[in-house]
C-alpha cells in the first residue's frame, strides 16, 4: 500500500528514513525513484547522500546546514509538487544474464549448509514447494520467463534487488535463518519477492537456484563493460535471465577469465510506465 503521506523517521543526527509504503511493489518503487531524482535535482547543500530502496529512501544530511525539520518539510513540498501515481517513461537498459540453473557450485554451498542444518530443505525444492511448482524445470521456466526491474542496489557493492515485472511470475521464498556465512560469487538467489545476483563471495540469506559466470561487479574494472562503473546495474535497468547449458557456461567463464567477455546490454530502449502498468493489469486479469 502506498501511504497517503510520506512518513519520516530520524536515523540519528545525520540520516532520515522516508517511507512511502509497506509493500514490495513496482508502483511504489517507481515513485521512490521519481521522488529521489527530484530531491537530487533540488541540489540541497545539506544533502550528502541518497539511497532509494524498495518502498523507502534514506537521506544522509549535514544537520549543521539544514535541520531535520526543515529538510523533511522541503521533501514534503517536492512530493506534493510531483503529482500522484506512477506515470511517464524513462530510458531503461535491458541486460541479459546467462544462468546455469541448479549448478554444482551453488549445490555444494547448499549441501555445506545442510551439514550443520540437516533439516533445511534444499533451496530449489523449497522454492518449488512454496510456489506450487511441480519440479525444477518448472521453476527455471517461471524464473527465466519474465523481465526484472532493478528496484535498488545495496548491502554490498553492486548487489541488486530485482522485482519480477510479469505479475504472474512472482516467486517468493523465505530467507535463510540463520544466514549462510558464505555464498559463491555469481550465485542467483530468491528472498522474499526479490531475486538477487551475488556480486562477490559474501554472507547471504537468499535461496540459491543457479549461477551466472557473467560478473555483476568488477572492482579492478578489467572487463570493458565496467570501464565507467564498478557495478554493472543501475536502478531502473531491466534484467532477463537466459538459461545456458554447461558448455556455454564454461565458454563464458573462459571469456571472463581472459578479459574479453561483453555483457548483453541493450541501451536504446525507453520504458513506458503507463503502458507497462496497463499490460500488467491485463496479464493479471488473464491470470
Amino acid at each position: 500500500m502506498l501511504y497517503d503521506a510520506l512518513r519520516f523517521f530520524p536515523g540519528g543526527d545525520r540520516a532520515i528514513e522516508v517511507e512511502l509504503g509497506d509493500e514490495m511493489d513496482f508502483t511504489i518503487n517507481f515513485i521512490v525513484h521519481k521522488l529521489v531524482a527530484a530531491v537530487r535535482d533540488a541540489k540541497f547543500e545539506a544533502v550528502v547522500d541518497l539511497i532509494p530502496e524498495l518502498a523507502s529512501f534514506q537521506i544522509t544530511y549535514d544537520p549543521d546546514i539544514m535541520s531535520y525539520e526543515d529538510l523533511c518539510r522541503e521533501v514534503e513540498g517536492i512530493y506534493a509538487g510531483l503529482g500522484r501515481g506512477a506515470t511517464g517513461s524513462l530510458p531503461s537498459r535491458l541486460i541479459t544474464i546467462p544462468v546455469l540453473y541448479f549448478d554444482d557450485e551453488t549445490a555444494a554451498c547448499i549441501a555445506d549448509y545442510r551439514k550443520t542444518y540437516p533439516e533445511k530443505t534444499p533451496d530449489p525444492e523449497l522454492v518449488c514447494e512454496l510456489n506450487h511448482l511441480p519440479d525444477r524445470a518448472a521453476l527455471q521456466r517461471a524464473h527465466a520467463g519474465t523481465e526484472y526491474w532493478v528496484a535498488a542496489l545495496g548491502f554490498w557493492p553492486g548487489l541488486c534487488s530485482l522485482l519480477a515485472l510479469h505479475p504472474g511470475a512472482r516467486i517468493i521464498a523465505p530467507k535463510y535463518n540463520p544466514p549462510r556465512t558464505h555464498t559463491p560469487k555469481g550465485a542467483v538467489g530468491i528472498g522474499g519477492a526479490l531475486t538477487c545476483i551475488y556480486p562477490d563471495a559474501t554472507p547471504g540469506g537468499y535461496q540459491l537456484i543457479g549461477h551466472t559466470p557473467a560478473p555483476t561487479y568488477d572492482g579492478a574494472q578489467r572487463l570493458p563493460d565496467f570501464k565507467d562503473s564498478l557495478a554493472l546495474f543501475r536502478a531502473g535497468d531491466r534484467v532477463r535471465f537466459a538459461p545456458v547449458g554447461l558448455e556455454e557456461y564454461e565458454d563464458i567463464k573462459a571469456r571472463v577469465a581472459e578479459g574479453s567477455y561483453r555483457h548483453d546490454i541493450i541501451d536504446y530502449q525507453v520504458f513506458s510506465v503507463d503502458r507497462y502498468l496497463d499490460w500488467a493489469k491485463a496479464q493479471g486479469a488473464e491470470g
Binding site: 536515523g11 540519528g12 540520516a15 517511507e19 509497506d22 514490495m24 545495496g154 526479490l194
Partner: peptide
C-alpha cells in the same frame, strides 16, 4: 522491507 541503513 529492505531499507537504507544509517551510519551508527
Amino acid at each position: 522491507i529492505d531499507h537504507g541503513y544509517p551510519l551508527g
